[in-house]
Simulated assay, not measured.
Amino acid sequence: MAFKMKYTIEQRYLPKGTKRRSGIKNQGIDFIVAHDSGNDGSTAAGNVNYYTNSANVVSASAHTFIDDKAIIECVPLTEKAWHVMYNVTTDNELYGFDSNDHAIGVELCYSYKKGNMNNKESYKRYVWYMAYLCYKFNLNPMKRISGHNELDPNRRTDPYKNALKIMGITKDQFLKDVVKEYAECTVAENLYSVYQGNSKLKDFPDYVSAVEYAQKWSNVNIRKITDGSWVWSNIKKESEDDCPMKLETWQKSMLTDGLNKLSEINGVDGTPLINDPEGWTKKVNNGTITAGELAIINFALISRQVIK
Rank of each mutant, 00 (worst) to 15 (best):
Y112Q: 08
K113N: 13
K113M: 05
K113Q: 10
G115F: 04
M117F: 09
N118T: 07
N119M: 12
N119W: 09
K120F: 11
K120V: 12
E121M: 15
S122V: 08
S122K: 02
Y123T: 03
Y123R: 01
Y123F: 15
K124V: 12
R125E: 12
R125K: 14
Y126A: 13
Y126D: 14
V127C: 13
W128H: 03
W128V: 00
W128F: 02
Y129N: 11
Y129A: 11
M130S: 11
M130D: 01
M130C: 04
A131T: 03
Y132W: 14
L133V: 05
L133Q: 04
K136D: 08
K136C: 07
N138S: 13
N140G: 04
P141D: 09
P141Y: 07
P141E: 06
P141K: 03
P141R: 07
M142V: 05
R144H: 14
I145V: 12
S146C: 06
S146M: 03
G147Q: 06
E150M: 02
D152K: 07
P153G: 05
P153A: 03
N154D: 13
R156V: 10
R156P: 01
R156K: 14
T157P: 00
Y160K: 01
K161M: 04
K161V: 00
N162H: 10
N162T: 09
L164C: 07
L164N: 08
L164Q: 08
K165W: 03
I166M: 09
M167C: 07
G168L: 05
I169V: 15
T170M: 11
